[in-house]
Amino acid sequence: MRKLSWFNTVTLSLGFAFLYLPILILIIFSFNESKLVTVWSGFSVKWYGELFKNEAFLEAAWVTLRVGIISSTLATVLGTMAAFVLVRAGKFLGRTLFSGMIYAPLVMPEVITGLSLLLLFISIGVDRGLMTIILAHATFSMCYVCVVVSSRMSQFDESLDEAALDLGCTRLDAFFSVTLPIIAPAVISGWLLSFTLSLDDLVIASFTAGPSATTLPMQIFSSVKLGVSPEINALSTILIGLVTLGVISASLSTKRVKTRKNLH
């Protein structure tokens, strides 16, 4: 095992300080007594209290949660199907177009995706709201799910599927009893990825939301435009806490599976 040189140690310390200090500062100041975000005047949790009284934020959080859950579930189903098509379906008419449409949204600027979807919804006369945000999020998230799942699928030994057929499964039965359990980790991380993407999205939601629905990022954006506020710090701290908790528990559970495997 190599020892880190002083250069590498300094680089790592500075690099991670750069990545994490801003977030740390934000969290610290969410407990600040003063309305002035940048001047410390004492510990308090009053901004959390304020936050839970703010109905606009609560409403937006509820919208975001619903959009996130529904759109990432849709995206996971569609993205897994698309991964199957890319990895297993072989040649078919329009395959190049299909894979192009999977990869293009990954690099498409959000402003363009948002604008194009908005123009679509208007030209077919759909009322914008929760539904249109869900459709938009599901569309770009399915591409991410497809990438995650298809990379797992391409490592998948196809003879496992053939073995299932050989032992009497129908194709559908083989999918649910063999393929799905094996690719499940990728499908789950695809769902989580979609969910965070949806939770995070401001631009596409702003285009497709219409006046009737406001998501949390939209709400944060409009209040942040007016300047820094301790309430937003409190909200950010809660969101960061939830994500950290999720990531840590996910990594612990995979670690537990690994150690369990090693024990035997």
Binding site: D157, S159, L160, E162, A163, A164, L165, D166, L167, G168, C169, T170, V178, I182
Partner: peptide, 16 residues
């Protein structure tokens, strides 16, 4: 394949 009176042992074993 699932309707044939035949079973196969795969080269990779294909154990689930």
């Amino acid at each position: 394949a699932n309707k044939r009176p035949v079973n196969m042992m795969f080269q990779s074993y294909a154990l689930f």
